[in-house]
């Protein structure tokens, strides 16, 4: 186990290193940030000075090594716009995003698993067919459109839900969190629904497919011949087996939820790091973009690691060595 973890940590570092190369070089080909920063009537001398201050006059390779050195010290540079540490900006907004992602993931799991189990165990029932039709809609409707329809129906037409912002926040373990206030909870519902719909539908369909496969297995019939009750047959004997392939895909889905959070945050003016990213892209605020990408890459890698650990803890046939 320990050996496995160390091996995985090495792999994670390697992946992040490769990501840093890609991020840095792709960034250096996107627009010249200096031109965005200086006033339109700036002289060439002023432009050159700004370029030097930002360290952008040095050769690309040197810039990259400085960049890596700074990252290792936790320094991603200062935002060109806010004139503050980029990483601090991101971390300030991270709780809002994580909160949204967390609620969306939870929502997907709570809704998708029971429905998927039901639809997989009783595929011929009318209700199962309705569930599958709904999930098809969930997968095929464009995400942003769903978000706008949610706003239109619940915020504009019925005026029962707020359409933007986080609402009231409280301090929780040093983070500013909104789900613990009634107002904040109300604010998170619509964005979380929008963000979860697609992965919910995918998770549901995967669970169903897995269940249908597992229900045909001899060990299910054997369990039934032992007199096992319906609930434990479906949710223990069958579901555990059905989830093994689902877990891997769901790890990827959580990553997708984080990525899609940028769109949701923009539509619902949710003050998270996704919205910060979009704003930074609009302003060519390179350090913030880089910090965002590196942090998200780190989260992805960590998530994959956790998924693999969960996976091996469920399936005894997988040997960690």
């Amino acid at each position: 186990m320990f050996k496995y973890v160390t091996k995985r940590v090495y792999q994670m570092i390697l992946v992040l290193f490769v990501v840093s190369i890609i991020v840095f070089f792709v960034m250096s080909f996107t627009g010249d940030p200096v031109l965005m920063m200086v006033t339109p009537d700036a002289t060439q001398a002023q432009i050159d000075r700004a370029r030097m201050e930002l360290g952008l006059d040095k050769p690309l390779i040197t810039q990259y090594f400085i960049f890596v050195k700074n990252i290792l010290r936790g320094d991603f540079g200062k935002s060109y716009v806010f004139k503050q540490s980029a990483i601090k900006l991101i971390i300030e907004r991270m709780p809002a995003t994580l909160e949204l992602v967390f609620v969306s993931v939870l929502l997907s799991i709570i809704v998708a698993i029971p429905l998927g189990v039901f639809a997989g165990a009783f595929p011929n029932k009318k209700s199962s067919k309705t569930i599958m039709l709904g999930s098809l809609l969930g997968i095929s409707l464009p995400n942003f459109w769903v978000g706008m329809m949610l706003i239109f129906v619940f915020a504009v037409h019925f005026r029962v839900m707020p359409s933007s912002g986080r609402g009231e926040v409280v301090n929780f373990l040093g983070m500013r969190i909104s789900i613990f206030t009634a107002d904040g909870f109300k604010h998170i519902i619509l964005p979380a629904v929008m963000l979860s719909i697609q992965s919910l539908a995918i998770l549901l369909r995967l669970t169903r497919a897995g269940m249908m496969e597992v229900m045909k297995q001899d060990y299910i019939k054997f369990a039934r011949s032992k007199g096992v009750l319906q609930n434990s047959l479906l949710f223990q004997h069958a579901l555990k087996n059905a989830l093994i392939p689902v877990i891997t895909v769901f790890g990827i889905q959580i990553g997708k939820i984080i990525a899609f959070a940028t769109v949701t945050e923009t539509i619902f003016s949710w003050p998270g790091m996704g919205k910060l990213l979009i704003d930074s892209i609009n302003r060519s605020d390179r350090p913030v973009m880089v910090a965002y990408l590196m942090i998200v890459a780190f989260i992805f890698v960590l998530l994959n690691f956790i998924v693999d650990i969960v996976y091996t803890s469920i399936d005894p046939r997988i040997d960690l060595r």
């Binding site: 297995q217 001899d218 005894p316």
Partner: peptide, 16 residues
Amino acid sequence: ISMIFQDPMTSLNPLY
């Protein structure tokens, strides 16, 4: 009444 199945390789749940 209990039952024993044909194929022991598939009658036991692999995760228990």
